[in-house]
Design a protein around this nucleic acid. Sequence first.
DNA 1: GTCTATATTATGATAGAC
DNA 2: GTCTATCATAATATAGAC
Lengths: 256, 256
Amino acid sequence: MGERAKRGRRRGPGRARSGEAATRREEILQVAARLFASRGFEATSVRDIAEAVGILSGSLYHHFATKEAMLHEILRGAEPLTRHTTQVAGADADPETRLAALAILRLKTLVADPVVFGIIYNNRTFFRERPEFDYVERAKSEGFEAVAGVLEEGIRQGLFRADLDVFLTIGTLYRLLAGAADWFTRGGFVRLERPPREYSLDEVIDYHLELIFRLVRADGRIDAPIPRAEAEALLAPLEPDQRGAQRREVRAAKNA
Amino acid sequence: MGERAKRGRRRGPGRARSGEAATRREEILQVAARLFASRGFEATSVRDIAEAVGILSGSLYHHFATKEAMLHEILRGAEPLTRHTTQVAGADADPETRLAALAILRLKTLVADPVVFGIIYNNRTFFRERPEFDYVERAKSEGFEAVAGVLEEGIRQGLFRADLDVFLTIGTLYRLLAGAADWFTRGGFVRLERPPREYSLDEVIDYHLELIFRLVRADGRIDAPIPRAEAEALLAPLEPDQRGAQRREVRAAKNA
DNA sequence: GTCTATATTATGATAGAC
DNA sequence: GTCTATCATAATATAGAC
């Protein structure tokens, strides 16, 4: 009957963090996603989700066939990153600009949707051993290969160090940015005696661009300007990813 | 007797993977630790552990009061790292050597005991929200402060960049090394079309030292030699950490 | 030190009333 | 779309025999 017809409407225009969900179904997904991200998928029970939504566990099965089905649907939120990564890697710009754009894209996207990417990050051993979820890994390696192409081009053009280990570097960048986003978003995995000041996403991006370019650039080019503005321009035409998420650009983190 | 005697003796004296356990209790702890590391603490059931040990779940409670008690005991394996970090940070050597030593110490230790540190890394949200486990975070921040002192001294001496953000940098280093160790130890979180070659721990250490020094050093000092040998010398007098773990020094990883 | 047996609670999931 | 009620299974944990 009518209830299925609503599925088409994924999201309303303004979807803040825990914000308004267009449909009941979406609301449940958001609540579940937050729990999966913070406690882990397996550690979250169907009853936890139901309770957080304010209904009984049995009622969830009116909306979703299984707990896993919820997760699959939540994970679709990660698709744009893979698509955008391939787009940017193949864009018409010099390798430095593309590399910067890829890093910014990644950091902004992970931070813009901390719930989805937190789930991916924090449940990676789970995803790795469940064949039903191997598309998660596949998406990652797709982006990985695209970035490799950019690095290799930069090396050929003499922009990046000839002795750069492309594979090690991309792996490092991915872990670096995932860790940074995780830290920035959630704030805090260390309680310090001298609590540090807060950081804006902008500062965090600059810090990591500098790190990346120091690591990657050929000798003598280390002081060249980092093409951040050009990189942002490359990203501008991309479909606005997680709508509403961008607003949080000036978030801050208290701990490390 | 015959029928139940079989069950107990699942494994002979030569027990696969992570080395001989002196006592039954230790053997159980090792098995449990491996499961906690790979599946997560909450996702591992007492029955899983018992089955892997070769006994019934009820029998575990002869050795341990609760599942959490096992985890607490396993986590004690992480104490040496904190102790050694403080020692090295306060050692009599220039800040560059100490910084290199701290990075090597951390990477080697995480790799030498991937099970314990894998548990810490992969269950960090769990630890964060359980007050009974907050000593895990406290240990981390203790090391954090020690490393901060080294960086600050290096800045004062003009070895490191004056504009270096100490807090951001240490957080980044910690995440970087934790991620690297996780990747190196477990091999693989991406399946690539062009599978990369394997890496020795030595190469991985060199790669990260170079990254760290490129990030941290004052302008003009980037080509100075990295004091790896001196750093290793600083580490030599430390008590040999997890017995038997050192042997695996030349492990390799297939994926990223 | 392990077994058998069991208590208790929590889990994912279903059926049918409203 | 939610509730009530329930099932089957799995969870952590215990008691006492051997």
